[in-house]
Write a protein that binds this DNA or RNA. Sequence first.
RNA 1: CGGCGUGUAGCGCAGCCUGGUAGCGCACUUGUCUGGGGGACAAGGGGUCGCAAGUUCGAAUCUUGUCACGCCGACCA
Length: 576
Amino acid sequence: MRTSQFFFTTQKEAPADAEVISQKMMLRAGYIKRTAAGIYTWMPLGLRVLRKVENIVREEMNNAGALELLMPAVQPFELWQESGRGDQYGPELLRFKDRHQRDFVIGPTHEEVITDVVRRDVKSYRQLPIHLYQIQTKFRDEIRPRFGVMRGREFLMKDGYSFHTSFDDLVREYGKMYATYTKIFSRLGLKFRAVAADTGSIGGTGSHEFHVLADSGEDDIAFCPDSDYAANVELAEAVAPGSPRPAAGKSMEKIATPGKMACADVAEFLGVDPSKVVKTIAVFSEKENGSKTFALLLLRGDHELNEIKAAKIAAIAPFRFATEGEVEAYLGCKPGYIGPVAVNPEKVLIFADRAVAAMGDFICGANEAGLHLSGVNFGRDLPEPIVADLRNVVAGDPSPDGKGKLDICRGIEVGHIFQLRQKYAAALNCNYLDETGKSQTMEMGCYGIGVSRIVGAAIEQGNDEKGIFLPPAIAPFAVCIVPMGYHKSEAVKAAADDLYGQLKTAGIDVVLDDRNERPGVMFADMELIGIPHRIVIGERGLKEGQLEYKGRLEAEATMIAQADILATIKEKLCAG
RNA sequence: CGGCGUGUAGCGCAGCCUGGUAGCGCACUUGUCUGGGGGACAAGGGGUCGCAAGUUCGAAUCUUGUCACGCCGACCA
């Protein structure tokens, strides 16, 4: 490609509302243009990157034996009613009516459609297993789209669905996808980690997320540097403290803590460490059958509630935070000074985090405004609580596999694999006949990759003050030729055109900057848009038969003989 | 959905308080010079000041409404 024949626009300044670095860079480099909130146009330059990512994903999926198909972006709402997700999904699901007033949705995911497709045509165990995937635009009406293409409303996703006659076979395919994903993200040149994950609203059992490691990521990942343990903090188990609860040493006392509501404030006021204080969180649960439960969740003052873990406690699922009125009704005290001591066990359930269960002589709210209790002990001052894992792990916690301590980093979720089991197959009657002629429900797996999000994630990892840098596998062009005086010097023009032709013939993705621009402009543009290899051609060097090579991340250029340049570039590209 | 904030040229902003010809930098067009790191000079083009109503002789500016967008929170592959 010659820049004079291409269309790209670069900017010195990013829009003021761009938040993360990849979004700023992509806008400045002219990869994307914002069309509406969370909705972007991929400009030719950015589309080249998107397509390269897409093709790597496609190649590896095909290598793994999956078959590509393309499902509609628009889906009948009926299918969503059939699976039961129509009510569950909420406003994130963009719904609309056609001219006949029939309900449709723009697909945020395709479990329903694929299950419908498979149940129509797959009737026999002989046709299984099968793995179908597509690379398609999805739409999720996010409450707050942000971070450019990393959390847009419209995005490109690879979603694959596998169907099996047995759980064992599903597990086999799941393992194969785990390996395939590992290969894909390695080929993309990303720093990533596979982590055990919560299955979320999609349901099912067995799930891993693939995260690109970046500070701007929206997820916290707990990992053990001394083993291969890694899990989303949503899921990572906080193991019980190794040491048993110390014996009670103090008697319970009421202490005045006027105006000190938050644990940290109470601890500071009393001059103790926050880990000596118990945080009491009031929750309320109202089940479908109408039964209501008020419960207190106890956490150490320096720990945070993990709502996903709490939501898994059957007695209080589903729960929400109690209102001020409910807290007063059950405890006779406003929030801020609530605690677990002397509450009516008939009406109030008490759950303590494992770390709290190991505390003695602790401080907690007194259920009276402006007062806390100190020297509180389970078994003596209040009944033994129900113990559960309720908190987020923190850096330094022991790894659940017992092989060291956990560390925490941020990640961008770019892939997710699930063992869906029979959730959708059962709801949509996706059955087959087994060897004995008996009807059986299929086992399903589902495997997603956020293709457009990967572009953002790759740029989160690959940028500097000059702009974007991407691995050659996904850069918009692998090599750029920047001639000094293309429109002035016949020799330079001839050498540039010749080299451009050679590289193209060699099948190398090359761009020749033949614009009549000043050198500074060309250098700055080529660096901003993320071309990994640069060859500069100038009259000075040409007289010596030399060209100048510089890698995007190298500080200094090196001179290379004209005759050797093709081989040198090939070598560099092979090296990645 | 709650709190806060912002809408003026493609991008970044000033002007608004105190009403009176709509500005600056970047980008764009033309020309001249320049030519190894976003160059200089000159001349240009481009704006329903988010939208609507009101106050006023006169509204980007004041008032009200409305829409959009953003940030924080809640929520979320």
